[in-house]
Amino acid sequence: MQLITSISLNYKQCVNLFIRFGITSATLVLLVVFLSKISPIDSGLSRVGDQFSDISYQAKNVSLKHGFGFSLLTNNLVLQDIKLAMPATFELATAAMLFAILIGVPLGILAAVNKDKLLDHILRMLCLLGNSVSIFWLSLMAMLLFYAKLQLFPAPGRVDIAFLDEIAQPRFLLISSILDGNWPLFKDALAHIMLPALVLGYYSLANISRMTRLFVLQELQQEYVITCKLKGMPFNQILRRHILPNTAIKLITVILLSYASLLEGSTFVENIFMWPGIGLYLTQSIMVNDLNAILACTIVIALIFITANFICDALYKFLDPRVANV
């Protein structure tokens, strides 16, 4: 068992990681501030509308007061809007991730075990397609097929109109509806989250299953597998007790990185499925050139991304000290 051989992360490496995290975040913020300064866009114009007199537009430039000021779209504080939108995106991303893991990992293992047979080829095709398809096209096609033609899923949106009041506050619908025992809401929220989660999860599915396959294949080549086989261990046991735990760490890092990159994909998926998350907020703000909101969303999403990367790096260092520090 090579699960946790030794946690030999020393103090210096720890500090090093934190410094890198800090520098990355700082660069991000600098980049964003730089963008706001050089942007020729006049955000205020759309607020006031067309007039014959010269009016001084109040919201002329990006204001970092109250943290990014007011949104042109909703007239709320940008940070407030983001706070409302984040749970929706997290719910969607988590659902997509669950789908990707529950289907992707078993598929990857199966493909590795049945290397070069039909199943393997099918999976590799699936992965190739997953990497080649544009996610907005896939969402459009999926909505067309499953909603319009087959009517398997409900209308785009997070909940049905009957439940509109429920999403006025930031909350995780699926969890809180179970906790409240509100079954109709739960069923509705579940039905609405399915199609976007499936589409969003497809890309991660391709990635995860491919990586699982790779890791399992790498493990299968190790000597201890042959040893175990010689000892007469049934393959299932080898799989369960040795191979999987060894791939677990690497897989967890892949999953974590995949989760972060889901945020990028969600910009398109949310746009098409009218899912009120941060991706939809970002694309709508782009449409109206609301620089405050665009840059605030960028920082939030990028910070999450950086944090995920940083956690992965830390995990690698913690759990596998053989990895060279490049």
């Binding site: 779209l73 909703t74 809007d81 109109i161 509109l164 009041d165 999403i167 006025a168 009120p276 907020y281």
Partner: peptide
Amino acid sequence: HAWQANNSLV
């Protein structure tokens, strides 16, 4: 009755 900016007006 309720207004959720960019989402719905009731």
